[in-house]
Design a protein around this nucleic acid. Structure first.
Lengths: 196, 196
DNA sequence: GTCTATAGCGGGATAGAC
DNA sequence: GTCTATCCCGCTATAGAC
């Protein structure tokens, strides 16, 4: 409440992140200049440094925020049920979360290599934690005999790969609604891992 | 035979492409300078222009050569059998072709956006042709009742996504041999699409 | 075919006025 | 908080000697 209404920093800050996300997702981190980002926001390049210590900090902020959002959203999902229920919940969550965030997903994956080593390690650890949530479901289901006994780690990577590719081809307003895509993918996964 | 043995252009040319592929795969097209590529080869930057008209031409050469290799290798595969046989052949071919070429696969996908529009369109068309080979198998199998009737286009993208992610985590000399990875993936695909 | 040297440009980041 | 101006650097690509 003490904060002034209309303060520029409340408006410009988000605009900087949004402009950077859009341009970096489209052209790549190294190919986008601070001047281009500033032009997209409608300020001069020097003004960006009120919102980020440097270009690398901006990238880390974008990817880190995306990982925050992912972790927080997953925390709302109940994965404590039986393996089959948990698996379906995870699959549907992943699709519903990622597809509307195609830009951030794409950026967070493609620009990992442009993070400085310590930043990279931190993000990578969080990504592995996320994947391991799926891995644990598969392990539990295989141990219980609900799922076909196969290699849970390879199966995890196969499912994550399949799901993560969706935002690359799915277009809103396309041939099929997202709910149907979700059903199709769940069908593919269910048949491939659930014991008959 | 008229060509002199030991001519530098026969040796330096491939070295330039190899160095560029390695560096661009690791750091990204925009982040890698012609000077870095030259240093990796062991020449000065100006010498590179004996082998490429410009930096963009080098990128197009790398991605285009990869697509050439892919098309030529696929042409050796017999996909004329019944859908189930053709599907297995395609799956195993894709894994066997892509995994040992992780660097080129990664680069060819990640750097598409750095191709100039006409170059991009040409590569993209060839990629779609490749994916359609799988699509046709799925359509035939669904029409014949061998495969579970589902959406062939979405299923194509799901399978391609699953397979294409393999080089991102598979490491030679890792826990499992490639032949076993191949078997696991074929099992996943078979169960998900083949009618019981 | 490779070198050295350089033209010409655009990059990230900072200083100081307002 | 934003601006203008600028420092210093590295980039692509070319010219001309060898």
């Amino acid at each position: 409440m003490a904060r002034k209404q209309g303060s520029h920093s409340d408006i410009t800050g988000p605009k900087v992140r949004q402009a950077a996300s859009k341009l970096i997702a489209r052209h790549g981190y190294a190919a986008v200049s601070m001047r281009q980002i500033a032009a997209e926001v409608g300020v001069q390049a020097g003004a960006l440094y009120n919102y980020t210590p440097d270009k690398q900090g901006l990238l880390l902020d974008l990817i880190g925020s995306h990982m925050d959002d992912l972790a927080q959203a997953l925390a709302q999902v109940d994965l404590t049920g039986p393996p089959l229920t948990a698996l379906e919940a995870f699959i549907r969550f992943h699709i519903r979360f990622n597809v509307p965030r195609a830009e951030a997903v794409f950026l967070s994956y493609m620009e990992l290599r442009n993070l400085e080593p310590e930043n990279f390690a931190q993000i990578e650890a969080r990504r592995r934690d996320y994947e391991q949530r799926l891995g644990a479901i598969l392990e539990a289901g295989m141990a219980a005999g609900d799922f076909i006994a196969s290699d849970p780690r390879v199966t995890t990577m196969a499912i994550i790969g399949m799901l993560t590719a969706i935002p690359q081809w799915y277009r809103e307003g396309g041939r099929l609604p997202l709910s149907e895509i979700e059903d199709i993918y769940w069908g593919l996964v269910r048949r491939s891992v659930v014991a008959a």
